[in-house]
Design a protein around this nucleic acid. Sequence first.
DNA 1: GAGTGGTCTAGACCACCTT
DNA 2: AGGTGGTCTAGACCACTCA
Lengths: 256, 256
Amino acid sequence: MGTSGAKPWWRESAPAHNQLQYLELRDRIAAQIQAGVLGVGDRLPSERQLEDGLGSARGTVREALFQLEAEGLIYRRDRSGWYVCPAPILYDPTRSEGFMAYVTAQGRRPETETLSKRLVPAPDAVAGIFGVAEGTPLYDIRRLRSIDGRSVLVERIHVNPDLAPGLIDHSLDGSLTAVLKNAYGVAAARNRIAMKPCAILGDDAETLRARSGSPGLSVIRTSFDPAGRVVEYDQECWRHDAVIVSVDIRVAPPGH
Amino acid sequence: MGTSGAKPWWRESAPAHNQLQYLELRDRIAAQIQAGVLGVGDRLPSERQLEDGLGSARGTVREALFQLEAEGLIYRRDRSGWYVCPAPILYDPTRSEGFMAYVTAQGRRPETETLSKRLVPAPDAVAGIFGVAEGTPLYDIRRLRSIDGRSVLVERIHVNPDLAPGLIDHSLDGSLTAVLKNAYGVAAARNRIAMKPCAILGDDAETLRARSGSPGLSVIRTSFDPAGRVVEYDQECWRHDAVIVSVDIRVAPPGH
DNA sequence: GAGTGGTCTAGACCACCTT
DNA sequence: AGGTGGTCTAGACCACTCA
C-alpha cells in the first residue's frame, strides 16, 4: 500500500503497555505508519470500519484518530477521510530564500496563490509595529501556499509602501523578498521571529480547508532594513504537521 | 474573579456568526477570558454545570473546551478542572542566559528539578549527532522545569563527557549553560534549533502531569563549541500553551 | 464522600465529498 | 446515491482530587 519510502521522521518512542482502548488503537496505527504498511498519502480505513474491527464505539475510534492528528502522523480531508501525513518541510525563517526555493530544494512542489493585495489603513496593532499612526496606509497581502497540492500555510503580510511604492502591481506569486530586493533594493538586515503553537480559526481555517480549531503553528516575522525601519510584517499560520522550523545561529559574544 | 490583570495576549480575531453549539460556547468563554471576567488561574465551571446552562450534552461542552485548550486559553488539571492559562513565557533559545534567568526577568517564578543524571551508552540516533560511535558514554540528564508551580517543560540533555568531565557531580538545578561555562570554560559558538508542534506522550506526559496526547512544542537545541564539536544536545518538550519562542537574528550578508 | 474529569457506549441526523 | 466525517444526544462507570 505504501506510496513512498515512509520513514519515522518523528515519534521516537513507542509508548508501553496501554490498557486504554483508544491508546491501543492509536499506537497500532502509528506502528503501521512507521513500518510503512500505511504509506504517505494513503487513506485510513473509515471510522466505521475501524469501529467494527475493534468492537469499540465510534467516539473511541475518533479519539485515537485525534491523537494521531495531534502527533502530526495523519490529517483529515473534510468529509473525505483520514490520510497519512507527508513529511514536514524544513523551514528556516532566517534565510532570505523564499518558500518556492526551499520547498523545491527539498524535492517537493510548492505553489503560491495571492488571495488579496490592497492598500489599507493600518490597524491599531500593526501601526505600532511599523511605528506609524493608526490609519496610515500600508500594503496588506494575503497569500495561500501549498506543498504537493496540499494547502499548508496562509499568511498576511504588511509592507510599508514608502519603502516599496507600487509593490502590489507586481506579481506576488513568487518570492516577496526577491521582489523587494530586485525591484526596490530593499533587504532585511534583521529579523525578529516569534513562534507559537496555535489553533487555526475562522478565515484561516476556511482558506486552509481545515476544521476551525485544528492545531497550527503561528510564525510571526518582522524584518527590519539596515536603518532599523520595519520593512515587512508577516503573520504566518501553518498547519502544525507541515513544518519543522529550523534555525541556525551564531551566538553573540558575551556582553551582547 | 480575576486574579491578575488578564490581557488578551493571543487570539486577535473574534470569529463571527456561528451556528454550531460548541463554537458558540467556545467563543463565549474566550470572550469572558479576554474581558477578564475569567482571570488567569481561575477555574471554569464544571463540565456538568456548563451542560446545564446550555442544555447541551456533555460531549458538546467538552468539544468547546478542547478547542480552547488548543488555542492555549485554558488547560486542565487532571480530574480537578479546567483553568485559565497564564500568559506564555518568551523564550529565546539563542540567548545563553538560562531558564531561571529569563523566567525571573519576566516576573515569574521558575523551578528546576533534576529527575536523573547518568552516564549512558550513546543511543544510535544521538551518537550520530555527536559524531561518536554508538555506545560511547554520554551524560544523560533529565529535568523538569516549572513556572509559578506549573510544570511546563521536560528536557533530556546529552553532553559529551570529554568536554565536561564530572559534570553530573555538580548541581544541575540551575543553569546548565552556566555550569559548563564556569566550571569547564565551555561555551556555545553556534546553536542549531529545531521546533515542531508535537503531542506529549508517554513518560513526558506523566512527568508533566498532562494527558498523553495533549499538544506540545518540541524544541531541539544542538550547541557547538568554537571548534565545531557538539557540546550539548537538548531535547525539550514544552506544554504548547506555556511558551512563545522568539528569536532575533542579524541576517548574514548575501553570499552566505 | 462528593464532585471532577476520563473513558466508553449506542445510537441519531446532517453536510458534504465522491463516483 | 452512497459513503464519509461532523455534530449531537443521553446515558454509564471509573479513577482520581479535594475538602
